[in-house]
Simulated scan of single mutants.
Amino acid sequence: MTVALETRSLEKSFGGLRVTRDLSLKVAQGARHALIGPNGAGKTTVINQLTGVLRPNSGRILLEGSDITDLSVHKRVLRGLARTFQINQLYADLTPLETIGLAVSERMGRGGDWWRRMGTRDDVNAEIAEILSRFHLLDVMTEPTATLPYGKQRLLEIAVAIAAKPRVLLLDEPAAGVPESERHDILAAVAALPRDVTVLLIEHDMDLVFSFADRISVLVNGGLLTEGAPDEVARDPQVKAVYLGEAADA
């Protein structure tokens, strides 16, 4: 197995509270890997450590075999690691067209010149149009982001992450807060992510998890409870005890 993303004995504490406990996790290249767990399990804290928002107290983080534990958020993005957030981190006054244009231009190192490049470079324009089409945003591409339905905003955030052309993408609850009527597009967008992008999904929605993941890791109290194929995890008595309050087999 070629490992795309790995943690080794990761630990994170806030004062006397241990939030990540000796976490060793491997995400295979090209995998559709889900990290699940009850509220308070520490999932977002793990993601924040992986992306450099939080620094672990101990342990290491490796991206495609290279140690990135001490790298900044920006340098991790340049290495090919991107993420979405539970709460959208978008420019409310920009349109989807402008937002994707900025993301593509930033990736090319020409963020300060993005308006000209959008208007004069056919390859840039074609990439922007392809991303907008893939994420069902063409019909709203000239509307301010703040006016978009929430499901469209979630799609736009995933589109921005893909515009960075990551090799590893972390999706932090992409369906959170999306009305049932808009969830289909989110599910379809996640399912259609490029196979050359390794995806680690953090999600409470078990329908999304089990329709998407080929491997699942279960986090409880900051530590790894179990992991395996979706059908194995679904049958695991420890997982049933955590999620359903059922007594685990002795």
Rank of each mutant, 00 (worst) to 15 (best):
A4S: 13
E6S: 13
K12L: 15
S24W: 00
L25M: 09
A28L: 12
H33G: 04
N39L: 12
V46M: 01
Q49E: 15
R55D: 12
R55H: 14
S58Y: 01
S58G: 15
S58T: 08
L63G: 06
E64K: 02
D70R: 14
S72I: 07
H74A: 15
G80R: 04
Q89N: 13
G101W: 01
R107C: 08
R107S: 10
G109T: 03
D113P: 00
W114K: 04
W115D: 02
W115R: 15
W115P: 00
W115C: 00
R116P: 00
M118W: 07
G119W: 14
I128D: 02
A129N: 14
E130S: 15
L132W: 03
S133L: 07
R134D: 14
H136V: 11
T142I: 00
E143F: 10
A146W: 12
P149Q: 10
P149H: 08
I158Q: 03
V160M: 09
L171K: 11
P174K: 11
A175M: 13
A176S: 15
R183S: 14
V190G: 07
A191W: 02
L193G: 05
V199F: 05
L200V: 14
L201A: 11
L201Y: 03
V209Y: 08
V220Q: 14
V220H: 15
L224K: 14
E227Y: 02
P230Y: 06
D231P: 00
E232Y: 01
V239F: 07
A241S: 15
G245T: 06
E246W: 06
A248I: 05
